[in-house]
Design a protein around this nucleic acid. Structure first.
Lengths: 328, 328
DNA sequence: TTGTAAGCGTTATCAC
DNA sequence: GTGATAACGCTTACAA
């Protein structure tokens, strides 16, 4: 690789002058610039990004840590961050945390070790105090799930409102016994969606029945078990509210042939082409990712500016067939 | 941040000794080591990864470039690479190329600029000579699609065999007019799958009819258009062979209600829970990613060893309902 | 306008 | 066994 030194030697100027020319510093005589540019060209100079990064103290990179990059929801967030980052000559360091809260700190810390310029995080932990001092060193933006125990920017969906919408819709279709199916209440999304569900029940004058709350769904097996338990409840549910797309995916194979209405918080890749087609609360992960990336970039560009910490994005109900199975 | 200098000053040794201790160099007196270790601890020394990286000349990072990280197929590859990389204290720089061949060179080059230690690439171009000199500088491993115009490692699926399997299966279910639906023949996967399809037809004594080849499917609209054209062909198809999962996703909404058998090369997230359930040629993207990552790491660890360039992974047919609609 | 010198934090060389 | 010293390639003072 040719360095600035090499160019300087050939052009008969100092290394610094090459640096000036390359970086567009105006304090260079046109003729000098001309000469240096020519040599730059001839020698196919490419800056050593590692050196620049070292000097700058941070990499032109945005770190992304999400539970699972294979989940299209998080994939869409990652992709949007990547696209916005690319527009600013940045790359993205992506990593999947998995669902084990214990491992998150280690994984994210190892990401932070690489000195990214910013971090976009969808945490699987109930709180994120492990981030500690990092929060002062680089912009950290939470997506999908707001932080607990630390202060940082977040872009989340309206879990409360969305859950109310979905539940109210099922109620509107005549359901009176509606189950809530979810994964872990330690996730803010799940707990807030449960709150929204309860609010909608209350608003309709329906009692909240703890027996109709099924948690711990993390795969098809647990989904099936949850369903079986629910069906044995006295006054079994005629409808399900699934708290996220992942849960819905696990639930679907078992639910689709049952006379159970279903509404999912979170879209699925082929939701509209399932049989029956799936009614969902539609989120916009690409938008979340875009906004998060922009916030990171804004904070880098204007470190002293003040920003709104919590941004909650509207969600909308996309009504399809699965909420209408009123033939229990 | 405390540096080796700081530690050296406190411990009363030279910086180099601190380096030796930290890196486990045996040529240090036990007592010196003891003292340094203590200070290392007290000052909570953490190495500046940027400096190490700069010194090393390459980042402890594996670059991943795929058409679209949101596609679960490529997401699974990326995740597997990430997991294997993490086991070796490496991170992954992930980027989505998109479907435009023109942009690939720029995007991948910008990734390479960051000096990753290796690159895992699923190219959207018909040839990859733009990689040029990079191929001598870091291990580049192609996934899903073998390289053209350059020599590099690749881990691909058995496109030919899989397409034969799928086509033969449809033939076995009595279909005689089988259409091939795909995206771009410039992709080696698509062209080889077309070859396999033709081979299976030939083996069964069926004529190849160019009218039954529908290409250019890149979204739902083009999928619908392709379908409509196919249905107008003289002697219309009673079955479709879809050349990849993405094409199948676009095709599905229009196909599912038609009396058309369908077999897809490539699994979909809920293939078994669609109605009808989808017969697929099952690939194993996680395995592809794992093998690719390992190859990168192997080449880094043993630069002079020789490796098998092309690895073709077996695929298997997962027969479900969609291939059995014999009621045209 | 241009150049010199120093420094980022680490590792490699080579004396001692 | 240990420690000066240099080097990686770039940018930031500061001089000239």
């Amino acid at each position: 690789m040719t360095t600035m030194r090499d160019v300087a030697a050939v052009a008969g100027v100092s290394q610094k002058t090459v640096s000036r020319v390359y970086n567009g510093d105006p304090h260079v005589l046109p003729e000098t610039r001309e000469r240096v540019l020519k040599v730059l060209e001839e020698l196919r100079y490419t800056p050593n990004a590692l050196a620049t990064t070292f000097r700058a103290g941070r990499a032109p990179v945005i770190g992304i840590a999400v539970p699972d990059i294979v989940d299209p929801f998080f994939g869409a967030i990652a992709r949007a961050v990547d696209e916005e980052a690319a527009r600013h000559d940045m790359s993205t360091l992506v990593t999947s945390i998995g669902e084990d809260p214990e491992r998150e700190a280690e994984i994210v810390n190892s990401l932070l070790t690489r000195s990214p310029s910013g971090l976009v995080l969808a945490s699987v932990r109930p709180e994120q105090s492990y981030l500690g001092v990092w929060l002062d060193k680089l912009p950290v933006v939470f997506v999908d799930r707001a932080p607990t125990g630390v202060v940082a920017d977040s872009f989340t969906d309206d879990d409360l409102g969305g859950a109310r919408l979905a539940t109210a819709d099922l109620i509107g279709h005549g359901h009176r016994r509606i189950a809530f199916v979810g994964d872990r209440l330690s996730l803010p999304t799940t707990s807030r969606r449960l709150d929204g569900y309860r609010q909608a029940l209350g608003a309709a004058g329906l009692a909240f029945d703890p027996d109709l709350v099924a948690l711990g769904v993390s795969d098809r097996t647990s989904a099936r078990a949850a369903l079986e338990r629910l069906r044995l409840v006295e006054g079994p549910p005629s409808a399900l509210f699934s708290s996220n797309g992942r849960v819905t995916m696990f639930l679907w194979p078992a639910v689709k042939d049952l006379p159970l209405a279903l509404c999912s918080f979170g879209d699925l890749p082929m939701a509209d082409s399932l049989t029956p087609s799936l009614t969902v609360v539609d989120q916009d992960p690409a938008r979340v990712g875009l906004l998060a990336a922009r916030r990171v970039l804004d904070r880098l560009a204007y470190p002293s500016r003040r920003y709104k910490r919590k941004t909650v994005l509207e969600v909308k109900l996309v009504e399809r067939q699965s909420c209408r199975l009123e033939n229990w």
